[in-house]
Design a binder for these strands. Structure first.
Lengths: 174, 174
DNA sequence: GGAAGATACATCGTCATCGAGGTATTGAAA
DNA sequence: TTTCAATACCTCGATGACGATGTATCTTCC
């Protein structure tokens, strides 16, 4: 997830670590903050893997900056991660939103649509958080108001997303 | 999160690990599967911390079962984790849903309401995923249809949850 | 003059999670 | 009859994330 965000931001323009940190904080920070001690090692990993290159520039204000640029392999890797996300990136909303945030980088609308269809398929599966045997329970069937809340919220999300998915799939050209 | 779910399920009744696994899979598995190699060490951790005790019973079908029971410290710990969740448990929907799933275990409606109010406060903060400087951007201000989607979905979720939160806070007795 | 906060990057130890693999039994399907 | 799926638990190595802490500079405010 973090790695996808790093690659995604760098696809547009080279950035230094600190700026990257601010962008990632803006994107997902209010939900899931990213510690510096997570970001810098992640950058090193990607650099070591040859996905990004580093050049040192004098700092605008303080310490020198390490400006990060995607390599050709980095661009390829980003496109691959966007075109074929792990199932987890499809089902987990946090991860899914990160995929969505950078999906525009995929050059082919058909490839974008394919990713959206995977999410569509996931949302169309009959699934709940609570079951009576194998049967998924609806909010109305629960006593617990908090568990009712979970289902109410999840259903609202699901509806909004299905509407958006279908409209977007349409406009991507069927 | 996983630990909260384990404690939460065991609060109702003693269970063996395999059954626990199935319940956790039902609760959050469609979004975030939990590997066995994560669950069993987590059980051991909690046992080592004195939060749960284990007794061996002959297996109904195959291998012997290790039936897990919450200790008194385990019950106290669960109630503490529910009454005072980390900020992360409030902001991250996955974690928040787990808190909600077991919030009924808190004996005091006022304590339940206090937790809901923390979520309410979080949702009322002006936050987006995308900014123009410091100003949060609305879906309509974005070109990217995928980023529009993120905001559209997040807004629908937020609205549904705010409605539910206010109604539930009311019914918990103001 | 000094403290605080932003800029800018880094390391360290710890811990949670994961995938791969292992052990053993029972019942059903091929 | 062999194989598969389910039951039931476990270990191991790798990795990724985290909090704490450190280093250094510059600006702003008191």
């Amino acid at each position: 997830m973090l790695e996808l965000a790093i690659l995604g931001f760098l696809y547009d323009a080279p950035l230094h670590g600190y700026e990257l940190r601010k962008r990632i904080a803006a994107l997902t920070g209010h939900v899931r903050p990213v510690a510096e001690s997570t970001l810098y090692p992640a950058i090193k990993r990607l650099e070591k893997a040859g996905l990004l290159a580093r050049t040192t520039e004098p700092g605008a204000v303080a310490a020198p900056r390490h400006v990060l640029t995607l390599t050709e392999e980095g661009r390829t890797e980003l496109l691959h991660r966007l075109a074929e996300p792990a199932q987890r990136d499809i089902t987990d909303e946090n991860r899914w939103f990160t995929v969505l945030a950078f999906l525009r980088h995929l050059p082919d609308p058909a490839a974008q649509a394919a990713v959206l269809r995977r999410r569509l398929a996931f949302l169309q599966e009959p699934a709940s958080f609570f079951y009576d045997g194998d049967r998924p329970l609806a909010a109305e069937e629960l006593d617990d108001p908090f568990r009712q809340g979970i289902l109410t919220i999840a259903r609202a999300t699901s509806r909004a997303e299905l509407t958006w998915l279908r409209a977007t799939l349409d406009s991507l050209g069927g």
